[in-house]
Design a protein around this nucleic acid. Structure first.
Lengths: 162, 162
DNA sequence: GAGAGGAATGTTATAATGTTTCAAATTCGC
DNA sequence: GCGAATTTGAAACATTATAACATTCCTCTC
């Protein structure tokens, strides 16, 4: 819950990882969910950066550990992590990213930088409200919402044409 | 531009198709874009329902026409249609749907019914504004926005537990 | 209306992403 | 420890998407 809000700013990323893992352990314990070694390792790998990772990227990194895993291993771990709100899947990228609001009730909005690939997850109540409102207007009942915004982060917007 | 706003309501769907094709022809002519036979046929197929179609679904339907096409044919046609705003890709479904706001400047929001599979595209200025605002707050410059809401349409919300 | 140049399509192969299935191992509650 | 349930392993397969290169078609110019 203590994670820096701005991935593209200088920060001690090891702290991001450590925080995320600590949060995950707490969340799983509270819900009697088993954060097994594989699952934890996958979460750690996902958190290596603020760039989303594909399932097969994770698979390759596991292979470097000497863990000779097959695709289902990774997908299962990712399913588990998603279920407990520890990672999100970015549909437009077929990739996964660590959740920066784990444990809190939220509906993510993702700002994806086309240049550097970093993704910032925002919790934007205004956006959620507007979506709920628009859905209610046509009597649609939302279940899950994905807001994925592709564009340029503050660092990259200036150097776009170089 | 004359298309019914509510896919799951009774309507003369042939009119949807005819309108969409007429709009497409006008839009392409205005921009000197070639709406070739294949492209038009793909658009027509996409419009067969208000449910999104996968590229390989389109491919299979083309095959029934006797058109022995390969995947690139379909993907190229879809790319073209997307480029001119005639279809949208729903990332969370890996599928494509006819645009109900073709020709107008808009940023779609998609309401996807988990039960019946119909998709309603809304043009929701409130949502767009909220997203732009939230992005601006963190100095992010949006380029393209995808809002995909999964849930239950009015028709299905009542019969959900049967 | 011949021919050059560009756009569109055909064709083959392959890459990337995700799932099914069943067996083996581990963990949990008793 | 023992049975049940959960988790993981392993092999095969399904689905979605692209690369690369050849060919055809269209348009424009002369």
């Amino acid at each position: 819950m203590s994670v820096s809000a701005l991935p593209y700013r200088q920060h001690n990323h090891d702290a991001c990882i450590a925080d995320a893992l600590a949060d995950a352990r707490a969340i799983c314990q509270r819900q009697n969910a088993r954060l097994t070694a594989t699952r934890e390792r996958v979460l750690e790998l996902i958190w290596q950066s603020h760039r989303p990772l594909g399932a097969y990227d994770v698979l390759a990194m596991l292979a470097q550990d000497g863990h000779n895993a097959a695709p289902p291993t990774v997908y299962r771990a990712l399913d588990f992590l998603q279920q407990y709100g520890l990672v999100h899947r970015i549909a437009s990228l077929n990739a996964f990213i660590g959740c920066t609001h784990a444990g809190t009730r939220h509906q993510g909005m993702f700002l994806i930088c086309q240049q550097c690939g970093n993704v910032l997850e925002l919790s934007a109540p205004d956006v959620s409200d507007a979506i709920e409102g628009a859905a209610a207007d046509v009597h649609f009942r939302p279940d899950s919402v994905a807001v994925e915004v592709s564009g340029y982060c503050p660092r990259c917007v200036d150097h776009k044409d170089e």
